[in-house]
Structure formats: structure tokens, C-alpha cells
């Protein structure tokens, strides 16, 4: 029993220690951001690997999620004779929730894990140490551009996800199931609010981008510098990011949409 408590205590302390180190790293990254201003190329390079390379999975998933929403929404709404509202259902689900959340989850799997693995391997192969010995701060040169790129890419990816999702829902609802085209768009425009829904969705995805990249970058930087350590860190990135995104989504939804 005492052992159990001791174990629990140690784990608890470990969690706090990691949180502390992660916060410290974040502070260092933020303090180094100004060094990126004269060198936008560093960020552009990372937007490529984080954003552009995630485009395919985001577009494909967004389309399918939109199509499923169109189908399910139609089947539910048609019972009430309210299939004209399909556009509202599809757009609200995407813009408020699925766009930001699913994008963040896919981001964790596609870009976050890659970030962690890359940074972890750089540590394991002493590239980070080598940078330090060359008088180049790895936090500024390696971590900061990746953090900025992830933070900026996420809302763009989420917007693309939602947009193609709305088109996917349109394709199924209007194209296949015969919902009136005018009703699909006009009901949507009538009920989806720029501030309440679109703007809050963007805020959400900025928050997710922040958290997801922070976790990915920290796990990579904190990885045990062996192949096993890097693989564990990669797994942790995906698990922690997913949990953090879902938890944060609940909090943000309660704050934004709760009355």
C-alpha cells in the first residue's frame, strides 16, 4: 500500500517535472522567435514539411468526413422533413468541431510524429550537440521554426478540411440525394455565424496548433537519445497530442458555445 502511494507520488512528481521542462522549453522557443524574423526561409522550409506534406491526408479525410456527414445528416433529417437543413448540419459540425479536431488528430499522426522523430534523431545522432558546439542554438535554429510552422499551418489545414468537407456534403446531399441546391447554401449561410462558428473554429485550431507542435517539439527534444527512446517519444507525441486536443476541445467548446 505504502509502495503504491510512493509509486504514485513519484509518478506525479515526474509529470510535474516534465511539465516544468516543457514550459521552460516553450519559454526558450518564444524568447528565440525574434531571430526568425530576418530568416523567413527557415519557417517556409518547415511549413513545407508540416503543412504541404499534410495536405493530401487532410483533403482526402475532409472530403470523406463531409460525405459521411451528408449521408448521415440526410438520413436523420429526412425523417423530420428537414433535409433542407442539411447544409447547416454539415457546415456547423465541420466548422465548429470536426474541422479543428480531426485536423489536429491527423496532424498529430502525420506531422507531429514526424517532428518528434526528426528532432529526436537529430539528438540521438548528436546533431543538436554539434549545433551547440558550432555556437548555433538548436532551440532557435531547429525548434523555433518548426513550432511557428506548426502553429501557422494548423488553422490553414483545418480551414481546408472544413471547406472540402462542406463540398463533400454538397456532393452527397445535393448531387446524389437530391437536396435543393439553393436550400443547402442559403440555410447554411443563414445559420452559420461568422463570429460564433467560423472565427471560434479558427481560434480552436490555433490553440490545437500551439499545443500539438509544442508537444511534438518537446518530446523530440526530450527524447532519450537512442532508437528506442525516439520511438517511444514518437508514440507519446501522438497519444498526448490526441488526449490534449480532445480535452482542450471540451474546454474551449464549453467556453465558446456554452451560454
Amino acid at each position: 500500500m505504502l509502495d503504491l502511494l510512493q509509486n504514485l507520488g513519484r509518478r506525479g512528481l515526474g509529470v510535474f517535472e516534465r511539465l516544468g521542462r516543457a514550459s521552460l522549453l516553450l519559454v526558450q522557443i518564444l524568447a528565440g522567435l525574434h531571430t526568425l524574423l530576418p530568416r523567413p526561409r527557415l519557417v517556409i522550409q518547415q511549413v513545407f514539411s508540416v503543412g504541404v506534406l499534410s495536405l493530401v491526408i487532410i483533403v482526402v479525410s475532409g472530403t470523406f468526413v463531409g460525405m459521411v456527414l451528408g449521408l448521415q445528416g440526410y438520413n436523420t433529417l429526412v425523417d423530420f422533413g428537414a433535409e433542407e437543413s442539411l447544409g447547416v448540419v454539415v457546415a456547423l459540425s465541420l466548422v465548429r468541431e470536426l474541422g479543428p479536431v480531426v485536423t489536429a488528430l491527423l496532424f498529430a499522426g502525420r506531422a507531429g510524429s514526424a517532428l518528434t522523430a526528426e528532432i529526436g534523431l537529430m539528438k540521438a545522432t548528436e546533431q543538436l550537440s554539434a549545433l551547440e558546439m558550432m555556437a548555433v542554438d538548436p532551440v532557435r535554429r531547429v525548434l523555433a521554426p518548426r513550432f511557428v510552422a506548426g502553429f501557422l499551418s494548423m488553422p490553414l489545414l483545418a480551414a481546408i478540411f472544413s471547406a472540402v468537407g462542406v463540398l463533400g456534403g454538397y456532393f452527397v446531399g445535393v448531387g446524389l440525394l437530391g437536396v435543393d441546391e439553393g436550400a443547402y447554401w442559403s440555410q447554411m449561410q443563414d445559420k452559420v455565424d461568422l463570429y460564433d462558428d467560423v472565427y471560434n473554429g479558427v481560434i480552436k485550431s490555433l490553440a490545437f496548433g500551439w499545443v500539438a507542435t509544442w508537444i511534438a517539439v518537446f518530446e523530440g527534444h526530450d527524447a532519450v537519445p537512442t532508437s528506442e527512446g525516439v520511438s517511444r517519444a514518437t508514440t507519446r507525441t501522438v497519444v498526448y497530442t490526441s488526449l490534449a486536443v480532445l480535452g482542450l476541445d471540451f474546454v474551449l467548446t464549453a467556453l465558446m458555445f456554452g451560454d
Binding site: 511549413v47 513545407f48 503543412g51 504541404v52 495536405l55 457546415a91 466548422v95 499551418s153 488553422p155 490553414l156 489545414l157 480551414a159 481546408i160 472544413s162 471547406a163 472540402v164 462542406v166 447554401w185 447554411m188 449561410q189 443563414d190 452559420v192 455565424d193 461568422l194 462558428d197 467560423v198 473554429g201 479558427v202
Partner: peptide
């Protein structure tokens, strides 16, 4: 291209999806 696509998507959400 990516940034343009993202901004276009945001624009579409603002103009076509919302009001």
C-alpha cells in the same frame, strides 16, 4: 500554394458558408 489554398478555404468559410 498551400497558404493560398488555406486562405481561400477561410475566405470560402467566411463568404459562402457563413454570412
Amino acid at each position: 500554394v498551400f497558404v493560398a489554398a488555406g486562405l481561400a478555404a477561410l475566405f470560402m468559410l467566411a463568404m459562402k458558408v457563413s454570412n
